[in-house]
Computed example of a mutant assay.
Amino acid sequence: MQRPTAFKLDRKMAMLTREAINSGAYLEHFESQPNLWTRERIQNSLTETMQARPVDLAETWIFAYGSLMWNPMVEFEKRQTATLHGWHRSFCLRMVTGRGTPDGPGRMLALRQGDQTKGVALKLSDATLDKELQLVWIREMVLGSYRPMWASITLGDGNETRGLTFVADERSEQFEQDSTVATVAPLISTATGQFGSNTEYLLKLRKALFECGLQDSYIEELASEVERLSRRACCDVKDLSE
């Protein structure tokens, strides 16, 4: 049987699509990983999370803090800037596929406890909720690196609610305790994989924040250090060629 090619084609544009997930091509990319989650396990996680949904919640919002900001992929009714309370961004997940390799691992973004995070909230339609959430779960839970939860958010219009988000599962094999700029920047600056470079992800995040009128000091500091390391690497290569 011929393997699906949707992801290979879309990879040239460095953009994950609904077709890549629906065709199975996205999951196939992770087949070599020993901790790959099955579709059944992913579905069970979704079911358990929805069973824990607050009973008084009238709307379903997803809080986006990483690639969901610039490539939500899901269909949604509304989009607002939002603040997530009690969690902060952290490149704390080791990445050996996608934007890294076993020989050159990168770091994947997650959330860890403490402080707050400014991002984007996406309101999903009740009519297509199940279908859209299945796409999100396959995208985020393919390796079980995250823990889905309902967290407190304040929307840009001032309303407070609870939204779905994905925080780091500190029990996962990918979790790394040290996510400081000094440790993470050298990894991000050199890591690359089938999905593109780790630096590209970081700079897309900084751009997405800027376009929303938002800022994250951790992301700014990390991006500045990665750019500095990249400039130094270019100078080193130039010196060797002279």
Rank of each mutant, 00 (worst) to 15 (best):
Y146W: 03
Y146E: 01
R147T: 11
R147L: 13
P148D: 02
M149Y: 05
W150M: 04
S152M: 11
S152Y: 05
I153K: 13
T154H: 13
T154A: 13
L155V: 10
L155G: 09
L155A: 10
D157V: 05
N159A: 14
N159M: 15
N159C: 14
N159F: 14
N159G: 10
E160N: 13
T161H: 11
T161N: 12
T161L: 08
R162V: 12
R162H: 09
G163Q: 02
G163D: 02
L164Q: 00
T165M: 02
V167N: 01
V167A: 12
A168E: 01
A168N: 06
R171K: 15
E173N: 15
Q174F: 14
Q174S: 14
F175Q: 11
F175C: 05
F175M: 10
F175L: 08
E176K: 07
Q177D: 10
Q177R: 15
D178V: 04
D178E: 09
S179Q: 02
A182H: 05
V184H: 02
A185E: 10
A185Q: 10
P186V: 04
L187I: 01
L187N: 02
L187Y: 00
I188H: 04
I188E: 02
S189N: 02
T190M: 05
T190N: 03
T190S: 07
T190R: 08
T190L: 01
A191P: 04
A191R: 10
A191F: 04
T192M: 05
T192R: 12
T192V: 01
Q194V: 09
Q194I: 12
F195R: 08
G196V: 08
G196N: 06
S197Q: 03
N198I: 02
E200Y: 06
E200Q: 07
Y201G: 07
L202Y: 05
L202P: 03
L203C: 03
L203F: 11
L203I: 05
L203M: 13
K204R: 15
L205V: 13
L205A: 06
A208G: 13
A208F: 06
A208D: 15
A208Q: 12
A208C: 11
L209V: 09
L209K: 14
L209W: 06
F210E: 13
F210R: 12
E211R: 15
E211Q: 13
C212R: 14
C212L: 07
G213N: 14
G213M: 11
D216E: 11
I219G: 13
E220D: 15
E220M: 12
E221N: 12
A223N: 04
A223H: 06
S224L: 01
S224E: 03
S224P: 00
E225D: 02
E225L: 04
V226M: 03
E227W: 07
E227G: 01
R228S: 06
R228M: 04
S230Y: 00
S230P: 01
R231A: 01
R231W: 00
A233C: 00
A233N: 03
C235D: 07
D236A: 08
D236H: 06
D236Y: 09
